[in-house]
């Protein structure tokens, strides 16, 4: 046990260095969006409907509220209220997610823009990465822009020998993801994985010319899932249908079903402008930028030090 105190001291002193880098990164993120005339917004962390996803579980905040798993629904409502470019850096919470890439509480950067789709968001994401690599806080980039773009269809065909977009099999998809796709992504420094199978559309739009695929992309850096983006779904009936599918799946897994966010649905019914958006895990982004392999080492107080 003689080592533990000095090891903890070392962690705390690394933490001071990391916090200074975090500060510089946050500052650059804000300045990036400021240069693009985005409005920084704040939405509540305590919400009535924490998520619409079969596999994301929220932490209860009592009295019928939950801790937000992402600010998605409220931010989209703001787009409906006349704001055109918004971003937010906030804390998000997810139950039962602990590991070297997961922390129940983490920092999320989320931004939305009207008049664009996932490809526009992809370009903006790339521009943000360029801006971050240009700061002194981050070691210089060891690979070349622009980022590679890989479709889920091609990834699975190359690394798992089948195409989930034409023949959907959910259990096989996720098992192959963990055993084959994610390990393959670990060898790629930075890549956009795009055009997911329609059953994984979440709240993204399906492609008009190929409804088996949705307009969704994820940014991966050395296998770390950094961000998830959509051409946002606008159709009201499709929302209702997808909410129902999520409830059905959660009931089948005997999981809590969160209430539908009626005010969000009302905003969709009223009509949102065409838009795209992305959620970026800031802790993981910092991990990838600095080559740090445990999320605890980029947070000021991970659960283990609270």
């Amino acid at each position: 046990m003689r080592q533990s105190s000095s090891a903890e001291d070392a962690c705390l002193c690394d933490a001071a260095g990391i916090l200074k880098i975090r500060h510089a990164i946050h500052k650059e993120i804000r300045s990036f969006f400021d240069r693009l005339d985005f409005v920084e917004v704040e939405t509540p962390i305590r919400v009535p409907c924490p998520c619409i996803d079969p596999y994301i579980d929220a932490l209860s905040a009592e009295q019928g509220y939950y801790l937000a798993t992402s600010p998605e629904l409220q931010m989209k409502r703001l787009l409906g209220s006349g704001l055109e470019k918004i971003y937010q850096i906030t804390h998000a919470f997810r139950a039962e997610e602990e590991g070297h890439m997961h922390s129940a509480e983490f920092t999320m950067l989320e931004w939305y823009r009207t008049g664009t789709d996932y490809l526009g968001i992809m370009e903006e994401t790339e521009a943000l990465l360029r801006a971050l690599y240009a700061t002194d806080a981050v070691p210089s980039v060891e690979w070349e822009f622009p980022l590679q773009r890989l479709s889920v269809s091609d990834l699975y065909t190359d690394h798992a020998g089948w195409d989930p977009c034409s023949n959907w099999d959910e259990d096989r998809y996720f098992r192959d993801w963990v055993d084959g796709i994610e390990p393959a992504l670990q060898n790629m420094p930075a890549v956009f994985v795009m055009d997911f199978p329609a059953p994984l559309a979440s709240l993204s739009r399906l492609k008009t010319d190929n409804p088996k695929v949705c307009e969704r992309f994820e940014l991966f850096m050395s296998g770390i899932e950094i961000g998830n983006a959509f051409s946002e779904l606008l159709d009201y009936d499709e929302h209702v249908k997808r909410f129902a599918t999520v409830h059905e799946k959660r009931r089948a897994m005997k999981k809590v079903c969160y209430p539908d966010d009626k005010k969000f649905l009302a905003a969709i019914a009223q009509g949102l402008p065409r838009c795209g958006g992305i959620a970026v895990g800031v802790d993981r982004l910092i991990m990838a930028l600095l080559h740090i392999d445990h999320i605890d080492n980029v947070q000021s107080f991970p659960l283990s030090r609270l």
Binding site: I56, G99, F174, V178, L200, E218, N228
Partner: peptide, 28 residues
Amino acid sequence: QFVKPGKGQAFTRTRLKNMITGNVLDKT
């Protein structure tokens, strides 16, 4: 290792060692 795609099923990747033979096995 806890592995979970942001929107997807969760898994635990394990590396196991047979305590008699010393063989190592990766199991998800």
